[in-house]
């Protein structure tokens, strides 16, 4: 479904990614883990088109998307739930969802389906998005991304700043999407949570991927040493 091939990228004189390669098959979920500064955010920025790769590329369903404008990447079927949710405060809940459908990509997701998957949102639809709790906002952000009918959904730090109860609700929504066959890449600080919610994982460090493999039965000691660089 989505492949990252030997990606090098950076900002100005600063290089951040040094040959990152990843592949996520259709219906699979990849958990991207790693400490701050490991290159997760830059990887997402290349995927969404805000950073152009120096070399290497990203393909979605076989066509190259790296280097395209963010707008075009959305209409090719890649959507993101950004870190910190980033809802539009001047828009209501429903308007936030509708803006997700801005590029008119055809598919199964519409308002009705989002409300049926996240029933908690329907009674809030006319509310300003800024009046919602963090957990509710995160559901809106996920619903908003789904409205573009993506082939691949990126989720950046879903649990950041949420109460444990809200995190449970958000991740049960992710479980539901996985069950429906959505392809996902998630970035998550909580490694147990990340492994429990994914099929495969990749651990980033210094702009590369020292360790990856299936999430089920992953060796925690191995992950720790890859994460912290204790070889």
């Amino acid at each position: 479904m989505i492949s990252i091939n030997d990606l090098h990228a950076g900002y100005g004189a600063l290089s951040v990614l040094f040959g990152v390669s990843l592949h996520v098959a259709e219906g699979q979920t990849l958990a991207l883990i790693g400490s701050n500064g490991a290159g997760k955010t830059t990887t997402f920025s290349v995927l969404t088109g805000f950073v152009k790769p120096r070399s290497g590329n990203v393909t979605l369903n076989g066509s190259v998307i790296s280097g395209l404008a963010p707008t075009d990447i959305v209409s090719m079927g890649l959507a993101m739930v950004p870190e910190g949710r980033r809802l539009f405060p001047s828009l209501t809940v429903e308007e936030n969802l509708m803006i997700g459908a801005h590029c008119d990509r055809k598919g199964p997701w519409d308002l009705k389906r989002v409300y049926s998957v996240f029933p908690a949102l329907e009674p809030l639809r006319k509310r300003p998005s800024s009046s919602l709790s963090g957990g509710q906002q995160q559901l809106v952000a996920i619903g908003r991304a789904l409205m573009s009918n993506p082939n691949v959904l990126l989720c950046d730090e879903l649990s950041l700043g949420l109460s444990p109860a809200a995190v449970d609700i958000v991740y049960s929504a992710i479980a539901r999407l996985r069950a429906e066959g959505m392809t996902l890449i998630i970035v998550e600080q909580d490694i147990s949570r990340a492994l429990a919610s994914s099929d495969t994982f990749a651990c980033m460090r210094h702009g590369g991927i020292p360790l990856s493999g299936p999430s089920a039965g992953a060796d925690r000691a191995q992950i720790s040493s890859a994460y912290f660089g204790m070889d």
Binding site: P70, A79, R86, C103
Partner: peptide
């Protein structure tokens, strides 16, 4: 920036 993530030109 978030608007661009939504596919808004």
């Amino acid at each position: 920036q978030t608007a661009q993530l939504m596919g808004i030109n």
